[in-house]
Design a protein around this nucleic acid. Structure first.
Lengths: 240, 240
DNA sequence: CTTAGCATTATGTCATACATATAATATGAG
DNA sequence: CTCATATTATATGTATGACATAATGCTAAG
């Protein structure tokens, strides 16, 4: 006799099931942001579980940013804000060293890769703002050898903004603490000023110049040199 | 008489507060993955709230991947898996068009930006595997003008893998559905074969060749041409 | 020493009651 | 009649207590 294959026993909890059902409900009904969701009691009744379970499932979805709850008004469907989920866990004191390192590498990748979008979207006022940032930086640069971290952030942050990609931009905002952390660690373990290969140093001012008059290709090359110390650091510590 | 500034009323819910307290607890005690967390009842007692509230707070942290719960064993601290949080919400049917578009742009940025890491980490066996993928692709390419989607995924996926950045790699895995979705939409709204500028078409085989013998710089240029249709599409539809 | 069974325990689920905030409606002043 | 204010209804937020369930560790039988 033919035995049926033993189906894996459903090990998922009630809350798990309810969560999937809710997600399916959202998709099937093609909810748009702002649409109301049945109230907890009704859901509990139709699903045949306690309100507790429904609540926990909804709470998960809320944590993921898929629903929003207001007293008396009930719950409404929301477009999940991908990025927001990271915010709470993206804490250098919570993340492992390796994850931090990889996120830092990700930043290098992003800045190298966004050249084309910068050239596509650059506006006169953006370039002017970069100009201001560079000017301020150079005015205060005499006392310190290493550029100050906040000017560094201002310049690169502006670049992300110019990419015109809100998701990317939020992502970068979120990653800032990681950068700071790795950056500080980097300067601490390696306190001596980095020595660029002769004649290869690229400042923010020079980057801006390329952004004005150059091409995506030349900008990438300039950016690569600008980021050289960080790349070297990433490579030196081995890529796992 | 000097009036004290009106302190902003704490609008956060009990669960919010408990969540922050727990996070603070984790950081202060420098928990490492695997460390046990006090049980719900104890937490409820020490914090002076009901078990319900503690549970909801813990549930949020669990949703974020910061803690894991096992029956009888209690809760343990976990290294948050950044990426995993995305998985549930990163569904083309749930995300808005604009977010999708931005994620697709993000892919272009990533592939343009990771050249240096590819050259730093490339291994003979990786190159051989790429070789195999390209060979298979060319063997089946005669019947179709457009390359098949799965070979496309295989090749580019392998590149991500070669970056040796697990976070990046998981990220790409997660974004795959988005790519598929946008890709299909792209070919549907614009069914005619894309016309590369004369003599500029770069195939996977050519990319591989550059990866073997070229430099990060030349690879970026080759990749830029390879991705040209996608870039054009991104630019054509305006960057918001 | 191994194994089967049992007791223990922390999370998972349920039921119920009450608190709280707010949308909707009713009320009153002008 | 219009606008501001008070009332009420309602859905979420919190509390409490009970029981279910599964995994752990102990115990006793083999």
């Amino acid at each position: 006799m033919e035995l049926k294959k033993l189906e894996p026993v459903g090990t998922e909890s009630l809350v798990d099931k309810v969560e999937s059902r809710l997600l399916k409900y959202f998709k099937d009904n093609e909810l748009v942001p702002g649409d109301a969701i049945p109230k907890e009691i009704d859901l509990a009744n139709s699903l045949g579980v306690s309100r507790t379970v429904v609540r926990e499932a909804l709470l998960r979805l809320r944590t993921l940013g898929l629903v929003e709850s207001k007293k008396r008004r009930g719950m409404i469907f929301k477009q999940p804000d991908i990025i927001n989920n990271f915010a709470r866990v993206l804490d250098p004191t919570l993340l492992g060293e390796d994850t931090m390192k990889q996120l830092f590498e990700l930043r290098l990748i992003l800045e190298m890769g966004m050249a084309d979008f910068l050239f596509e979207n650059r506006q006169q006022k953006d370039l002017e703002e970069l100009e201001r940032i560079v000017a301020e930086e150079e005015a205060t640069a005499t006392q310190k050898i290493r550029f100050s971290l906040d000017k560094e952030i201002a310049f690169h942050g502006k670049l992300y903004q110019m990419s015109n990609n809100v998701t990317l931009q939020k992502f970068q905002d979120l990653l800032l603490p990681v950068f700071n952390y790795v950056y500080l660690k980097e300067t601490k373990t390696n306190p001596d000023v980095y020595h660029y290969s002769e004649g290869e140093f690229v400042s923010h001012g020079m980057l801006l110049d390329v952004l004005k008059k150059g091409t995506p290709e030349s900008f990438r090359n300039a950016m690569r040199r600008h980021l050289e110390p960080h790349f070297d650091h990433a490579f030196r510590n081995g890529s796992r």
